[in-house]
Each structure stands twice: as C-alpha cells, then as structure tokens.
Computed example of a mutant assay.
Amino acid sequence: MIARISGVLVHKQPAQVVIDVQGVAYEIEISFNSFCQLPTEGETAVLHTHFVVREDAQLLFGFFQLEERSLFRILIKVNGVGPKLGLAILSGMDADAFCHCVQNQDSATLVKIPGVGKKTAERLVLELGDKLSSWQTGANTGVQAGSVKPALFAISAQSEAESALVALGYKPVQASKAVAAAIRSSPDGGCEDLIRLSLKGMI
C-alpha cells in the first residue's frame, strides 16, 4: 500500500493534485480542506495517502493531515459510502464539523453535501455515532486568509471558485449564487477564500 507521497507539487486544483516524485508524477484526489493547506506549485508537498484498487481503475486519495485520512477510512466502511463520496463529505466540511454533526445527530446538515441523501445521512449518524463519540482531530483545519488580491484578478478568482465548486459536486446555479454571496462578504478574497466562504454558506 502507498501510505505517503512526498515530492514536488506540479499542479493543484480543489479536487486533484499532481506530485512529482523523482520523475514519476502521481495524480492524487484530495479534499478541499487538504487543498487549502497545500504549499504553492513548485514546492515540496507531503500527503498521507489511501490506495484503492478496482477492476477498472487504481485510485490514490491524499490527505494533508493524518486525522483526515483516519476519518476517511472510517467513512468508507459505512454501507453505501465509497471513496468518492467519502472525499466529497470531507470537502463539504472539515473533520471536526462532520464529527459534530454525527455526535449531535444532525443529519439535516449532512444532506446539504453533494451526493449525501437523507438515507445516507441517517446511516452515517447511526453507524458512526459510537465510533466518533470522542473524536478529536487535534488538527488546525482553518484556512488563513490570503493577502489582498488586486481587483484585476477578481473575475478570474470568481470563475475559478465556481468551477471548483462544480468539481466538488455542486450544481452550476448553486455554485454561482454561493460565490456571489462570498464575494459580497469578502470582495478582495482570492479563489481559495471564495471557495471556503461559499462552502460555509451552503452548509
């Protein structure tokens, strides 16, 4: 099993990164929370990974924090929750927020995450209640606000944020409205800030 990847961050986007390890480039699917903690492209990045082998594909999922990978592995053991949905859940909210929902039996908030229906949300609460009763990530999943971006990049940041939300599973109309609201809240925010605020507003 591939447990960790360390190398040069060649490319990153909210749902996927490419890391070059001594000439071999690994394509790794990541959560938005992990994306926000990555260094800039060209720098060294380290991700804790989970390797999935299927008949039709070999997939590598990466996490900036070990705690997030641990929660991912707990999630995919729930009936009906595969790796893709597990990653979508961890993109929709951070580990602490998810555990809070489960501990408080808040399935109504969980159904707001793309791909999580009412039955899945109720199953998550039911099956994980005991397992996550004392969960503490101990990780700082908050995202530091970036420096103020010139107005010239506002349109680009808005477009990139909307595309990222669509990639995370939200409908284009939802993404557009959420990003517009985020811009009103943070007019000078960069792409990552807009995505973070958009996700917060939709949950």
Results as ranks from 00 to 15, higher is better:
Val8Asp: 07
Leu9Lys: 01
Val10Gly: 01
Gln13Trp: 06
Pro14Thr: 05
Pro14Arg: 00
Gln16Lys: 11
Val17Thr: 04
Ile19Tyr: 01
Val24Met: 05
Glu27Phe: 02
Ile28Thr: 00
Glu29Gly: 10
Phe35Tyr: 08
Gln37Glu: 07
Gln37Phe: 10
Gly42Ala: 03
Thr44Glu: 12
Leu47Asn: 00
His50Asp: 13
Val53Cys: 05
Gln58Lys: 01
Phe61Tyr: 12
Phe63Asp: 09
Phe63Ser: 02
Phe63Tyr: 08
Phe64Cys: 14
Phe64Arg: 04
Phe64Gly: 09
Leu75Glu: 02
Ile76Leu: 07
Gly80Gln: 12
Val81Ser: 02
Val81Met: 06
Val81Glu: 09
Gly86Val: 10
Ala88Arg: 08
Ala88Cys: 12
Ala88Lys: 06
Leu90Met: 10
Leu90Phe: 08
Asp94Met: 13
Asp96Leu: 11
Ala97Asn: 13
Val102Trp: 02
Gln105Lys: 15
Asp106Gln: 15
Thr109Leu: 14
Thr109Asp: 11
Pro114Ile: 07
Pro114Thr: 03
Val116Asp: 02
Val116Ile: 15
Ala121Arg: 00
Glu127Asp: 13
Leu132Val: 12
Thr137Val: 10
Thr141Gly: 06
Gly146Ala: 14
Val148Lys: 05
Val148Trp: 04
Lys149Ala: 15
Phe153Ala: 04
Ala157Arg: 04
Ser159Arg: 11
Glu162Arg: 09
Leu168Asn: 00
Gln174Glu: 15
Ala178Ser: 15
Ala182Gln: 09
Ile183Phe: 11
Ile183Leu: 11
Asp188Phe: 14
Gly189Lys: 08
Gly189Ile: 09
Gly190Val: 06
Cys191Tyr: 10
Arg196Ser: 13
Leu197His: 02
Met202Tyr: 02
